[in-house]
Amino acid sequence: MLKIRRETLKNIKPKIISWSALHRRHHELSDKHGDPHSPNLHGGNWRDRIRGLIHSHLTWMYKHEYPSVVHYVPDLIKNKNIVRVDRYYYLWASLGFVLPTLLGGLYHWSLAGALAGFIWGGVFRIIWGGHTIWSINSFLHCFGMSRFETEEHSHNFGPIALLTFGESWHNNHHAFPGSASFGLEWYRLARISHKEKKKRGQKLRKCICKKHFSNYKI
């Protein structure tokens, strides 16, 4: 039985730690009933496919239930540093708007400069970054190439790697969920070398919550 203080759990809301729990649930039930953002659970005709893409890209964020952080991320909620970062999440998010606004205003010494900093350094950055990351949930579970045999519909798609710093090697990610590096060759962004891959071997398949990621095979 995990001994976790009530105060710690009370401060965990839909932020970093909850997102981590969602991501582990996605791996546990990927493209199966219970996956919070699968595009492949809405039917087979073209209308259902489009509806699934919209759900996995955007609407899942307010149509899903948050899984238990005690069950999925017990390691994170016992880490004081991670809990501290999570507790001040809205502060970090706010600084992502405030700092570009201040820097733009100071650099141009004008209200127009501050507004430009707010729009391009804050709003546009968040929208651009959000949609490129969400495309991994949606498009990469429908289109691309599958290099490894996994139990869901994950794919790799090189062009999106340029926008997501290598995150689009999504089939690699599902094949090796315990690895922080998704690219497997020198010319891929976020790569892991062949030597390192060989050295780590089966360890790449393991993660903190390994009981949820035991069904992947190459």
Rank of each mutant, 00 (worst) to 15 (best):
I126K: 10
I127M: 05
I127H: 02
W128A: 08
G129Y: 01
G129F: 01
G129P: 00
G130C: 01
G130A: 03
H131A: 02
T132R: 02
T132M: 09
T132S: 03
T132G: 00
T132L: 03
T132W: 02
W134Y: 11
I136Q: 10
N137A: 06
N137M: 02
N137T: 03
N137E: 04
S138V: 01
S138Y: 03
S138R: 04
F139I: 14
F139R: 12
L140M: 14
H141S: 07
H141I: 02
H141D: 10
C142F: 13
F143E: 07
F143H: 11
G144Q: 06
G144K: 04
S146T: 04
S146H: 04
S146N: 09
R147C: 01
R147G: 03
R147M: 06
R147D: 07
R147A: 06
F148I: 00
F148E: 01
F148G: 02
E149A: 01
E149D: 08
E149L: 00
T150V: 10
E151H: 01
E152V: 01
E152F: 04
E152M: 02
E152P: 00
E152H: 11
H153E: 15
S154T: 14
S154K: 12
S154G: 12
S154V: 10
S154Y: 09
H155L: 08
F157C: 12
P159S: 08
P159Y: 04
I160R: 10
I160E: 09
I160H: 09
I160D: 08
I160V: 10
A161F: 01
A161T: 13
A161E: 11
L162D: 07
L162M: 11
L162I: 04
L163E: 04
L163I: 04
T164A: 05
T164H: 07
T164S: 09
F165S: 07
G166I: 05
E167Y: 10
E167N: 13
S168G: 10
S168A: 15
S168W: 08
S168C: 11
W169K: 14
H170F: 13
H170D: 13
H170N: 15
N172C: 05
N172M: 04
N172T: 03
H173E: 06
H174C: 09
H174W: 07
H174I: 05
A175T: 07
A175Q: 12
F176N: 06
P177G: 14
P177R: 13
P177T: 11
P177D: 11
G178D: 09
G178M: 08
G178P: 02
G178F: 06
G178K: 09
S179F: 02
S179G: 13
A180C: 08
A180P: 12
A180W: 13
A180R: 15
A180E: 13
S181L: 10
S181R: 15
S181F: 13
S181A: 14
S181P: 00
F182P: 05
G183I: 02
G183F: 03
L184K: 03
E185Y: 09
E185P: 00
E185F: 08
W186P: 00
W186R: 10
Y187F: 15
Y187W: 15
Y187C: 05
Y187M: 07
R188N: 15
L189T: 14
L189F: 15
L189E: 15
A190N: 15
A190G: 10
R191M: 08
R191C: 06
R191S: 12
I192L: 14
S193A: 02
S193F: 01
S193K: 06
H194Y: 00
H194F: 00
K195W: 06
K195D: 11
E196D: 13
E196L: 06
K197T: 03
